[in-house]
Simulated assay, not measured.
Amino acid sequence: MTSRHDLQTQLEHGIAALGLQLPANAVERLLDYQELLARWNATYNLTAVRDPAEMVTRHLLDSLAILPYVRGETLADLGTGPGLPGIPLAIAAPGRQILLVDSNGKKVRFLREAIRSLKLEGVRAVQSRVEDVEGQFDCITARAFASLADMLAWGGHLLTKEGIWLAMKGKRPDDEMPGVPAEFELRGTHALSVPGLEGERHLVVLGRASSQAGC
């Protein structure tokens, strides 16, 4: 079993490799979240990742890798599962209003317990299908839960006129680009280097098409 000290060292090195500077208590709180997830995962099977060190890489550092691209006062994390990337982002950059959305009841119960026990201010969780969520957000994150076309068809109504959509993918999804609805446009594709993670990771940044954004 990997000790918390070893996990802390791994996480701190990963954060440094990403070039991030986080609040003073962020590492402790991220590890508290990882411990809570591991504890619940033993009973509720919230994630296929079971090894704590792998959780640090595949959950915490993978989520933090998109932090430089997050902006705005409000964020919705769609298909968040056990809170990824929403909870790590809330810990790393507090002060933003964050909505965690998932249709799975046991995952949402975990999210609410994580929000309570970690004292995550401004964060709330809702059990819902994406298409039924109301409101608008400056930033939307989605971690490969669907194709770009489906993501935007189900959740595009949630994006403000000037907002950005951050879609986390493995391989660069060039084959999905033609399916992006006409009212949205590609703003950029970024290859992400997640410390300790083998395989490709890409972030696709989308926004409302210029003709739409000014409406």
Rank of each mutant, 00 (worst) to 15 (best):
R4A: 04
R4H: 07
H5P: 03
H5F: 12
Q8R: 15
T9F: 00
Q10A: 13
L11M: 09
E12S: 13
E12Q: 14
G19Y: 08
L20D: 01
L20Y: 00
L20G: 02
L20T: 00
A24F: 08
N25S: 11
A26G: 07
V27I: 15
L31K: 11
D32C: 12
Y33F: 15
Y33A: 09
Y33I: 12
Q34E: 14
E35I: 09
L36C: 04
L36Y: 08
A38R: 13
W40P: 06
W40R: 10
A42L: 15
N45V: 12
L46H: 07
V49D: 05
D51W: 05
P52Y: 11
P52C: 07
P52D: 06
E54K: 13
V56P: 00
V56C: 04
L60V: 07
L60H: 10
D62F: 07
L64Q: 07
L64I: 09
A65F: 04
P68V: 11
Y69V: 06
V70I: 15
R71S: 15
G72M: 09
T74F: 03
L75S: 03
G81L: 07
G81D: 05
G83F: 00
G83H: 07
G83D: 09
I87C: 08
L89C: 06
A93S: 14
A93V: 04
Q97T: 15
I98V: 15
L100F: 06
L100D: 11
S103M: 09
S103P: 02
K106E: 05
K107T: 00
V108N: 00
V108W: 02
E113L: 14
A114N: 10
L120T: 06
L120D: 01
G122P: 05
R124H: 14
A125K: 05
V126E: 14
R129L: 09
V130R: 00
E131H: 06
G135T: 14
F137G: 02
I140N: 08
I140T: 03
A142E: 02
A146Y: 01
S147C: 10
A153G: 11
A153D: 10
G163T: 11
E176Q: 12
G179F: 08
P181I: 03
A182H: 13
E185G: 08
L186N: 03
P195T: 09
R201K: 11
L203N: 12
R208L: 06
A213H: 04
G214H: 13
